[in-house]
Simulated scan of single mutants.
Amino acid sequence: MIFRQLLHFDPVGASYVFGCGGKASAAVVDPQLDIEPYLKASEETGMNIKYVIDTHLHADHLSGGRKLAEETGAKYVLHKNADVKYDFFGVQDGDFLDLGNVKIRVLHTPGHTPEHISLLVTDRTRGEDPWFVLTGHTLMIGDVGRTELASNIEEGARDLYHSVFEKLLGLEDHIEIYPGAFSGSVCGRSLSGKPFSTIGFEKRFNPALQRTNPTEFIQFMLENIPPQPDDFQQIRQSNQGY
């Protein structure tokens, strides 16, 4: 497997390029508006971009996903229920995306937004068990994603509880977590500057995950909410194609 994590600072976020070098197939996840770094990574690694995936319709930055997909001929992937005005390749919970020796399993993880997905990745040259999960703005390092930018805050928090505690925390402790944001992002509180972790470490040290009761978790999500991003409604609508 070839794997690259790209960290961005204006706005703060993380995107990913990974795939199978032997089969020359790659996916790009949560690309920012400037698509040149992804085209350069494709050229440097010799991998063709097969899928461009947005884990959700972002409200803090404009996505380069559609532009990158058009430029490369890749499929642009969103959850099948994404509310958008353009064509895309729709996936749902349990679907698989194939990248040669690399396999992606789609997990529907609503809460931060209704259409949010996470991506559980296996490198079959290493084994048949998953290696890491790309969690977008669902489970991050030191916190979870805010829930009021695309839905009612309490409904979002309730959905997020089920996504985190019933899906993501059901993964084995050694599974690595690669989120879509880190310290400095407005999409979480007290985010770590270390942009990756493991399921086991977050279970033990992430404050949000200590609220194992749904009522306590929802109450936690209603407290200390960060300021909303500037123009977040317009940004999300632009990413929807409105």
Rank of each mutant, 00 (worst) to 15 (best):
T113H: 03
F9S: 00
R146S: 08
E148Q: 05
K40Q: 12
I141A: 02
L33T: 12
G94V: 12
F220T: 02
Y76W: 11
D34M: 07
R211I: 15
P11H: 01
A150C: 10
K167W: 10
L7P: 08
E176W: 05
L57T: 15
D129N: 10
K40P: 05
I53P: 11
L78S: 13
I175E: 00
E71T: 14
E202W: 07
F220Q: 10
N213R: 09
P227A: 06
Y161R: 04
G100A: 00
G142D: 15
P195F: 01
H56Y: 14
S25I: 04
D173T: 09
L209V: 14
S183G: 11
A150V: 13
I153V: 13
K85I: 12
I225R: 13
N224T: 10
V186P: 08
G127T: 14
L139K: 08
E71P: 13
V91C: 13
S63G: 12
M221Y: 07
L119V: 12
I225F: 06
G90Q: 09
G142L: 12
H112K: 01
R158E: 14
K50L: 04
I225D: 06
V29I: 15
G241K: 13
N81Y: 10
L39M: 08
Y86P: 15
S197Q: 05
L57E: 04
E128P: 12
F96M: 12
I175V: 09
I175H: 01
G19K: 04
N81F: 07
L62T: 13
G156F: 02
F88P: 05
D60S: 14
M1V: 13
H137C: 14
I104N: 04
D98P: 02
A26V: 04
T45Q: 04
S190M: 10
F18A: 08
K203M: 06
S118V: 02
T215K: 07
R211P: 10
K23T: 15
C20D: 15
D83A: 09
G184C: 13
P11Y: 01
L168D: 01
T125H: 00
G188K: 15
E166A: 05
Y51V: 15
Q219I: 05
D231V: 00
G64Y: 00
T147K: 03
T125Y: 00
L7T: 06
L134A: 03
I53Q: 04
Q5N: 02
G46Y: 12
Y242N: 08
T215F: 02
D87S: 09
Y38L: 07
S238G: 03
Q32C: 03
L168Q: 01
C187H: 09
N206W: 13
P110S: 00
P110E: 00
Q228T: 12
I141G: 01
G127W: 13
E71K: 15
G193W: 07
F132D: 01
G22L: 02
I175Y: 00
V164K: 03
L171M: 09
L171A: 03
D83M: 08
L120S: 01
H137L: 14
P31T: 06
Y161A: 11
A41E: 14
